[in-house]
Design a protein around this nucleic acid. Structure first.
Lengths: 342, 342
DNA sequence: TGACACGTTGACACCGGTGTCAATATGCTT
DNA sequence: AAGCATATTGACACCGGTGTCAACGTGTCA
């Protein structure tokens, strides 16, 4: 809506529009007085360049999109925050696109979305980051993308954290507290992170020289409701596990809910822990002990990688091979302690 | 990145680009055979029109933005969902912009955002919808906007629900349950909704012929933490209130947390109710009794109004004067019951 | 048969910027 | 003074579409 264009400025300043273009782009080889004159007119008229015209001329992109169908709203919210942050810093717009993972026309739908918006960079959130057909389509159309939390390097750039490590350390923590019968709630079978978590559980048991409690491994889907359901199964086992480890906090909160609703006290009767550390984790009672995943930082870094790539600039971030595998941290709160008085 | 342009199609089909333009825009006065020929080429080449070129030529907008600094993430998430939904339906992009309500440079910052993105329509979420300087700037620059939840018609379009009605009915519900000492947690003093809620509380007491418990009215700020703090004050009163009504669910969850952490049972020892019905409300234990606000529908309608306005089309929604004041609904769950065994 | 309306089409300018290249002015070398 | 490199500037085409208007062919009516 800014009515004043580069032509107006040029006319007003008595120079060509190209010269104005030079000034606003800080190009070399403009005489000081010309620059000053143009700047004065720009100030006076309040000229702002039109991003559309610029993008069209430079054949450059203006936007990236965040594609998601994630079962944990709290996760998405934190991720979005980080992405948004780098977008602001680099003057990029962020498009949001909600899609349905199960929808049969998903790939075509996303293809349509790309055509309509000209977002030529995508950030893919699990479970989309594991979806082969989608990646194939994007590669074929040469659409740049960065995946979240799917460290399968062969499939393209990815930013995430080490799920296995997180699950491993969390399991070790519970074992150290002297829990032996630990119930595990897996994530969605389609997401690689779920398998990596499972590997982490098993690794910790193996290292401790204990037999892994196969019977206490329950399928979940990373949603609150699946946490409730999985807990219902686990809490009916005899003997009841003394702790439950869920593969994300969203499910852990479901476990908490399930325990409460059958009159169990947490952590007195049962310990509950999760992974992620989302906002929800400190709003429930008791606060959840969890492995903190630097979700916002992951979002930020993903946006960084994508935008740098789109701009043809090198990735100047940390150069270690693990730069895109951020570290997690055990956050001890109130939902877990030694088993005892039950 | 779609390499094939309207020129390619025109050359291939042996017509002018204008004719191609006519075909893709379904304009009248194109002979059937020309249309077929062009369509065939479009199919064969996979041509998609470039939104940037189109937007530039038509001087039309491509995006709207959702500006928010809302203390309740769950609220925002639901709202965003509704907005996004209408955006998809109408092929508009949605920009997200997080801002800080308190920031002194807020207005200038938003002005910069508008210039940079060319989003010429804005959806304003409380507390931004009440911010006079911001509205002034937008009016001056002739930027279209729709406000959420701030039904002060003089300031422009708004979509929301009747806070006073919600608070009134909720209070009546508690009074009907025979609560007399009800603690009230107000919202943010800068947001009009907070005052409207208060009016609703008072109205219910007045109609019941009861004296309003001024001492049990505590300031909150719509955040979880402010709910925790307000509950701490209320729960130390002697006699302790038998119920607490928070002006939104985010705070009600804080109240719940506060009650639990001092060993109180909900609803046996104290009833807790809120307003909104966000996702969080059914993830805490016990589930929150609340007034459901159709947040997603509000977001959808706000996007509808804004986009129709931008397109110069009339608002064809419901025509009643209250069309933009959606109704709320009492959702009875498990966090409130008659006062009794304490 | 001529006048006229109408359907169909393309040439051209335009939206608001950027890239290329040539034209001009200036300073320096020899 | 001629020859050359360099700094500064503008004309023009271009990005990918749309709007305006004139040109053309055809059918209808007087």
């Amino acid at each position: 809506m800014s009515a004043v264009t580069i032509n107006d400025v040029a006319r007003e300043a008595g120079v060509s529009k190209k010269t104005v273009s030079r000034v606003i782009n800080n190009e070399a080889n403009v005489s000081v007085e010309t620059r000053d004159k143009v700047m004065a007119v720009i100030q006076a008229t309040g000229f702002k360049r039109n991003p559309l015209g610029m993008a069209l001329a430079k054949n450059r992109s203006l936007f990236i999109a965040l594609l998601a169908d994630n079962p944990s709203p709290g996760y998405l919210q934190k991720l979005q925050k980080g992405v948004l942050q780098y977008c602001s810093e680099s003057n990029m717009g962020l498009f949001l696109y909600d899609c349905s993972y199960r929808s049969p026309g998903l790939v075509a739908e996303i293809e349509g979305f790309i055509d309509n918006t000209l977002a030529d960079g995508l950030i893919l959130v699990p479970p989309l980051s594991d979806k082969k057909e989608l990646l194939d389509m994007l590669n074929r159309r040469k659409v740049a993308y960065v995946r979240i939390g799917a460290p399968d390097a062969a499939l393209g750039d990815s930013v995430g954290f080490d799920n296995q490590q997180a699950a491993y350390e969390l399991t070790r923590y519970l074992l150290r507290l002297k829990h032996k019968d630990i119930g595990f709630v897996l994530g969605h079978p389609d997401q690689g992170s779920s398998q990596r978590c499972e590997a982490g559980f098993r690794q910790a048991y193996a290292e401790a020289g204990l037999e892994f409690p196969e019977k206490l491994l329950v399928q979940g889907y990373y949603t609150f409701q699946s946490g409730v359901d999985a807990a219902a199964v686990l809490l009916n086992k005899k003997p009841r596990p003394t702790a439950i480890l869920a593969s994300n906090d969203e499910m852990a909160v479901g476990v908490l809910y399930s325990a409460h609703s059958r009159g169990l006290k947490v952590p007195d009767d049962i310990s509950v822990v999760g992974i992620d550390d989302i906002a929800l984790s400190t709003k429930v009672w008791p606060n959840l002990t969890t492995m903190r995943q630097p979700i916002t930082a992951i979002g930020y870094r993903a946006a960084y990688k994508l935008i740098r790539k789109l701009q043809g600039l090198p990735d100047e971030g940390p150069t270690s091979p693990d730069a895109d595998l951020l570290t997690c941290e055990l956050i001890v709160r109130d939902s877990a302690r030694e088993p005892g008085r039950n």
